[in-house]
Computed example of a mutant assay.
Amino acid sequence: MPVLPARKRRAAMHKVDRVFGEKFLTAIDDFYRYGVHLLFNEWWEQAPQDAIDKYVAAIVDHPEQGPLAAAGWMAPDFSLAMVADCAPGTLGAAWHEHMMVNGLAEKLAAGYAGLIADFEASGKLNRLPPVLKYKVLRGYQTHDLHHVLTGYTTQPLNELALQAFGLAQSDYPYAAMTLSVIMGHATLVDPWLIQPAMDAITDGWALGRRARSIQFVDFENQIHRPLADIRAEYGLTRDAPFVPLMPRVSELVAGELEVQERMRAAASAA
């Protein structure tokens, strides 16, 4: 492949849209005030087509993910009743415990689908390819299953590790934006976050690279299988769980832990 002169290389490179860049900086400033769930949907209007095409190819050209994405299967809305009769040690029993202990919403995916619909009505998602729309909607369905399968908890740095895991398995702007926003915040606002965030990212990345792809897999139809068997099949077995070391807890992590405790308290009181 011929190498372009430096001036031509610079001319050929796409630039970040400056209006979107301000939104990206807003997310870096305060991840909770302007999260990636909004940033992701704001990107498509100004996104370089070349970047969009590469994200699409990462899925459709993947030997396992491509056929599953083409099938476009969506699970029925999750309910705790679906897994109430699963035997101890099964995926379903672990999923049930995960949802109950963390006080998590049963219809997370349905809620995000409503957000997508609002953005679509505004015209902001006219350039969002169908396969990437499927990726984000199916991703919200499987997110808590992936917590269970990988062993990552819902604590902030474990959530970051899970995003790195998913990004290691498939180039995907939502996960990449999450890591970029967190590291941008750590770099420019809260340096105490740098080391624990990088520990989380590298742990999730390494696990995601060595494991088989679990993206789009219909684990909802495997809830009665032993969790240990599924982890072994997909290369998710590990000697010890990820335990983040935080000698000095960053403001971002401390704030999220406080939010989680309030959510659990509210769920327990309901």
Rank of each mutant, 00 (worst) to 15 (best):
L227S: 04
L227Q: 00
A228F: 00
A228Q: 01
D229C: 00
D229T: 05
D229E: 13
D229S: 11
D229A: 13
I230Y: 01
R231V: 03
R231E: 01
R231C: 01
A232W: 08
A232D: 09
A232Q: 15
A232T: 08
A232G: 03
E233S: 08
G235L: 00
G235Y: 06
G235H: 04
L236C: 05
L236I: 03
L236Y: 01
L236S: 05
T237V: 11
R238P: 08
R238S: 11
R238D: 07
R238N: 06
D239W: 12
D239F: 07
D239L: 10
A240R: 12
A240Y: 07
P241A: 04
P241D: 12
P241C: 07
F242I: 09
F242M: 05
F242L: 09
F242R: 07
V243L: 15
V243W: 06
V243K: 06
P244Y: 03
P244K: 08
P244G: 09
P244W: 06
L245V: 15
L245T: 13
L245A: 14
L245N: 10
L245W: 04
M246A: 11
M246N: 10
M246W: 07
P247F: 04
R248M: 15
R248C: 13
R248V: 12
R248Y: 09
V249A: 03
V249W: 00
V249T: 11
S250V: 01
S250Y: 01
S250C: 07
S250H: 02
E251Y: 04
E251A: 11
L252P: 00
V253L: 09
V253D: 02
V253M: 03
V253Y: 08
V253C: 04
A254D: 08
A254K: 09
A254H: 03
A254M: 06
A254L: 12
A254T: 05
E256N: 07
E256M: 09
L257F: 11
L257S: 06
E258V: 13
E258C: 09
E258R: 11
V259M: 15
V259A: 12
V259H: 15
Q260S: 07
Q260D: 12
Q260C: 06
Q260A: 09
E261P: 01
E261S: 07
E261C: 02
E261K: 13
R262K: 11
R262V: 12
M263H: 14
R264E: 13
R264G: 05
R264M: 08
A265L: 15
A265D: 14
A265W: 08
A266W: 12
A266G: 05
A266N: 12
A267H: 09
A267V: 06
A267F: 13
S268E: 13
S268Y: 15
S268F: 14
S268L: 14
S268G: 12
A269Q: 11
